[in-house]
């Protein structure tokens, strides 16, 4: 983060890489500025005293929702692959992968 609490182009570029979206420098600058605006309003939230307050991830009190270990019909492969941009040998084809699975 820049000293003024705003976002630098580099901050935005890092976030864009995390989100895996190609953005132009113009877009990076635009979003850096707009994010900063939202974050300034968010600062109001950040400033609140929430000592001892439990976070709510979810509005429901539900627990232990499960299903039985019983097979259900799978999709038809032809129908599945028909939606794919590229297919080979009944599998989804993608360009060579640079990074490794982690």
């Amino acid at each position: 983060m820049a000293d003024d609490g705003g976002l630098t182009r580099d901050d935005a570029a890092y976030v864009a890489r995390l989100a895996r979206i190609d953005l132009t420098d113009e877009e990076l600058d635009l979003y850096a500025g707009q994010l900063a605006t939202v974050l300034r309003h968010a600062a109001q939230v950040a400033a609140l005293d929430t000592e001892g307050v439990e976070p709510t991830a979810h509005p429901l009190p539900l627990r232990n929702v499960t299903r039985p270990d019983e097979p259900r019909p799978c999709l038809d492969r032809a129908e599945v692959l028909a939606q794919a941009p590229a297919v080979e040998d009944g599998r989804f084809r993608v360009p060579p992968i640079l990074g490794e699975a982690l």
Binding site: R67, P71, R72, P73, C74, L75, R77, L81, D89, G90
Partner: peptide, 19 residues
């Protein structure tokens, strides 16, 4: 509910959830 199987034909044990 897709089968947990080994060595099936590619992309035959798939559904909207696991895809």
């Amino acid at each position: 509910g897709c089968r947990n199987a080994f060595g099936e034909e590619p992309n035959t044990d798939v559904c909207p959830v696991c895809l």
